[in-house]
Amino acid sequence: MIKSIIGGLHLFSGNSQQTLATADYLKQNVDGNIYPCHCTNLAAKFALHAQLSVHEVGVGLTLEW
């Protein structure tokens, strides 16, 4: 099981087959938070957030485990 993911997911549409398949895969395999950044547009982030715990990423973000 994957704890969390941070990075660009290369998703550019909220309702594309690629975005929906990615959301389904992540829902089954991530037991934590998703931090999508570059190459993931707002519509895709909303689609992921419908199924997962999605958090915004920006300059100065600090994560502690």
Rank of each mutant, 00 (worst) to 15 (best):
Q18P: 02
V30K: 10
C39T: 12
T19Q: 06
E56A: 13
H38F: 11
S13T: 11
H55A: 14
I5S: 05
L9A: 01
N29S: 05
S53F: 14
A43L: 11
C37D: 07
A47D: 03
G60E: 01
L20W: 00
F12K: 00
S16R: 11
C39Q: 06
T40R: 03
E56R: 12
I6E: 06
N29C: 04
C39M: 05
A44C: 07
Y25W: 13
Q51G: 02
N15L: 06
S4F: 07
A50D: 13
S53M: 13
I2Y: 05
N29G: 00
D24M: 05
L26Q: 14
G32P: 10
Q28I: 01
S16Q: 13
N15H: 09
H49D: 15
N15E: 15
Y25A: 10
N41T: 04
S53Y: 11
E56G: 07
T19S: 00
G58M: 05
Q17F: 05
I2M: 01
V57T: 15
A43R: 13
L52R: 08
C37P: 01
N15M: 12
H49F: 11
L9I: 04
N29I: 03
I34S: 05
L9K: 01
G32A: 13
Q18H: 07
Q18M: 10
E56W: 09
V59Q: 10
Y35M: 07
D24I: 03
I34D: 09
F46P: 04
H10R: 08
I34L: 12
Y25F: 14
G7P: 02
T19W: 01
C39P: 00
Q51N: 13
E56H: 11
N29M: 09
S13F: 11
M1W: 00
V59R: 05
V57Q: 07
E56T: 10
S4W: 02
A47I: 06
P36T: 03
A47W: 07
I5K: 00
I2N: 00
L42I: 06
K3L: 07
K3M: 04
I6C: 08
L61R: 07
W65P: 13
G14T: 03
A50Y: 11
Q28W: 01
E64T: 12
S4C: 01
A50E: 12
S16P: 12
Q18L: 10
H10S: 10
V59W: 06
F46G: 07
S13M: 04
I34P: 08
L26T: 13
H10L: 03
I5E: 02
L11Y: 03
S4R: 01
V54W: 02
A21V: 06
D31S: 12
H10V: 08
D31Y: 12
L48I: 14
L42F: 06
I34W: 04
S13Y: 05
I5A: 09
Y25H: 12
L11N: 05
L11M: 02
L42P: 01
L52P: 04
A23F: 00
A47N: 04
L61Q: 00
V30R: 12
